[in-house]
Design a protein around this nucleic acid. Sequence first.
DNA 1: AAAATAACTGACCGGCTGGTCATTTAATCC
DNA 2: GGATTAAATGACCAGCCGGTCAGTTATTTT
Lengths: 217, 217
Amino acid sequence: MTLTIPKSRCHCRWRRRKEARPEEIVEAALALFVEKGFSATRMAEVAKQAGISKGTLYLYFDSKEKIFHAVIQHFITPMIDEVETLVKNYQGSTEALIKQLVHGWWGSIWNTPLSGIPKLVISEAGNFPDMARFYMENVVKRVRSLLEQIIQTGVQRGEFRDVDIPTVTRLLMAPIIQINIWAHSLRPYDDPQDGDTYINLHIDLFLQGLKKHGQNT
Amino acid sequence: MTLTIPKSRCHCRWRRRKEARPEEIVEAALALFVEKGFSATRMAEVAKQAGISKGTLYLYFDSKEKIFHAVIQHFITPMIDEVETLVKNYQGSTEALIKQLVHGWWGSIWNTPLSGIPKLVISEAGNFPDMARFYMENVVKRVRSLLEQIIQTGVQRGEFRDVDIPTVTRLLMAPIIQINIWAHSLRPYDDPQDGDTYINLHIDLFLQGLKKHGQNT
DNA sequence: AAAATAACTGACCGGCTGGTCATTTAATCC
DNA sequence: GGATTAAATGACCAGCCGGTCAGTTATTTT
């Protein structure tokens, strides 16, 4: 009957695609985890979204939690690697670097499912300590360390006031994390609010508060 | 054998205490919801913590979700009522009012289970829309409205720069909410950080950034 | 082309948990 | 102090879900 069916229009019920599966699974999981949260996401749904059966899921990942772990690792780690090299090679004022970093990060996260990860991690941290530890070590502390170095430099150069570096770093990050968390939790019930306005005013206020008095750029 | 047993040392297996139950249940639920999250908290645990059986729980609340709702209503609403009257009667500089409000709120939330409520609400908002709406209307918007009025006044008096009021209000709240969320999610895996230092620096930076240039108090 | 391999499937299972209700027991009434 | 009321109990149930595995099918090997 059917001779020489092209592979792309195969009538098979399914095809073997060992290499492509893990990434497809991880992408499906991210979308669903962000949409419904970790606990509320059913493995059957992840399978369906990834275009496979539930059994196949377990050929590639031992458990739901392992998928969660893989999601973080797959999407976040490469981004941070990238930012680290950017900072290493940067030439210019501290203020400009902070602006560039925040805007760059913002541009590649906001309006993507990745913006849902902070809320996801925070919501599930209590029930999945391994995941929390991994995120803390591989995301939070690396980002924080970068920002601390930058602000430290700014203080040494006399651009900034001599404040407590770890604390001020957290204060730089807090509103940025916060709006992402908000976007994936209470925003549907809130008045609309423009993200760019928020971020720009945050950087403005933050730098204005941090810079030495009377200094303008 | 045992005649005239004092009520306080009654040998009964249990006692009828219709009036006291709801509050005890709501308090037990708050503690557990904050510790483990809503989904991960078992009704049997809530009952045990409240010193009753699971069946009794359902004499006082129709469902788990209703308890959640009652928790918010019971603990948060009275606090906001209080703050509203405080603000209404306030005489003094805008800056001092903001400081007093933040510190007051901080003092009565931080180091209590109430600090866990924001994380709780955010985590469960997606799965419990009614709860999210209730929290938004009865907590977030009321608090925000108060702060907007205050900052508005500061701008009109010439104390503050002429910034976008709704946005700057969110920026005032964000780090405060954020540290509470953090405390109940990733803090166990993070380096220790003093809350007072954080809040004080936030207010300092925020007001410094918001005040008109060259103005000192 | 048939035998061997391994990717894939989906019905099934065990354990768990929100919610129920027939029964028990404290408190009240007469 | 016996009858009545209603607060409280806890064994039980229905249904859901993460995870399994015996069997199926696409692909490769010989």
